[in-house]
Computed example of a mutant assay.
Amino acid sequence: MTRELYDLCGIDERLRFSPYCWRARYALAHKGLDVQTRPWRFSEKEALAFSGQGQVPVLVDGDEVVHDSYEIMRYLDRAYPESPLLGEGPAEARARFFKHYAERSLAPAILRTVVMDLFNAIHPDDRAYFRETREARLGCSFEEFHSPAKGLSQLDTALAPLRGRLEEADFLDGDAPGGADYLVFGFFMWAHCVSSADLVSNADPVYAWRERMLDLYDGLGREALRVTDIEGAYR
């Protein structure tokens, strides 16, 4: 049976920008597992009814249905123990730190920088839903929240511990990439796909790491469609 991953798409169904879906895609590539991605939009909740919830990523692997990027990584480690992503015990606890660090420190700074680009990358049929739900979380409009200068300053501060690690090793998990790298890099792919904003300078060790991550698995990230590749979509 074909392994399937339900993956968020934007104005073009080839535009896949969810940081959580990118986590899952890199995790599958790390395991050497083939997967067929299925484009999904926010307005297609019924398509995920079989999973018991309404968010992506959703992985269908034979009779197994798993949602949530972190749970997908845990499942892959159980079902395919070779080349662990997260490990167990203290190693898995460390991976959880990177999960929360990325979601609570990096994601808000990146969102403040690219939120209007992100909004324009979303399919027109999904924009009203996206604006209503996300502005409710933010407590203000996208236009009020959007501030690239503040976002980049916030991100620069948040990246300090990442820089420290990447001055010691090529990847967060050492000489080779692992779960910690994918948990963090998903948010860089998010920005990479929807915006042309430069999040870090090319002298930053985080930039060199991002370039290495883009090139992994035959250019999985580098070959991804960006909104800037879609004629007339980026402004």
Rank of each mutant, 00 (worst) to 15 (best):
L155C: 01
E88F: 04
A203M: 11
L86A: 09
D181G: 05
T228F: 00
V35S: 06
C193H: 13
M116H: 03
G139E: 10
H30W: 09
Y20C: 14
A107Q: 08
E143G: 08
W22Q: 09
F119P: 00
E71L: 13
E13K: 06
S18H: 12
R25E: 08
V114K: 03
D117N: 05
R41K: 05
E231P: 00
E143Y: 15
Y234R: 04
M189S: 12
C193E: 03
Y80E: 11
G139W: 12
S83T: 14
G139R: 07
I110Y: 12
D175L: 12
L220S: 07
E223G: 14
G232I: 09
R14H: 14
L76D: 01
E71W: 15
G232H: 07
S201P: 07
V194K: 02
P57C: 09
I122H: 13
L138S: 05
V60K: 15
Y217R: 01
S43F: 04
G62H: 09
R104V: 01
L166R: 00
M1K: 07
D77W: 02
R127F: 05
S105L: 09
L216C: 11
C193F: 02
G219V: 13
A93R: 12
L155R: 00
E4L: 03
H100W: 11
Y207F: 15
D175N: 11
D181P: 04
Y70R: 04
S141N: 06
F130E: 03
I110A: 05
N202Y: 08
A121T: 05
R104F: 10
P148L: 13
V227P: 00
V200Q: 03
Y80T: 08
L199C: 04
D175G: 13
S196A: 14
P205M: 03
Y70M: 06
R134Q: 12
I230P: 04
G32R: 04
N120R: 15
D170V: 05
T228I: 05
P161V: 10
R137C: 01
W40T: 04
G151P: 00
A91E: 15
T157C: 03
Y234G: 00
P90F: 09
W22Y: 10
L159P: 01
F188R: 09
L183M: 08
T113V: 08
A149I: 14
Q53L: 06
R25M: 11
C21L: 13
L152D: 08
A49F: 10
D125E: 13
E143K: 12
F119T: 04
L59W: 05
E13S: 10
A93W: 03
L162Q: 10
A49R: 11
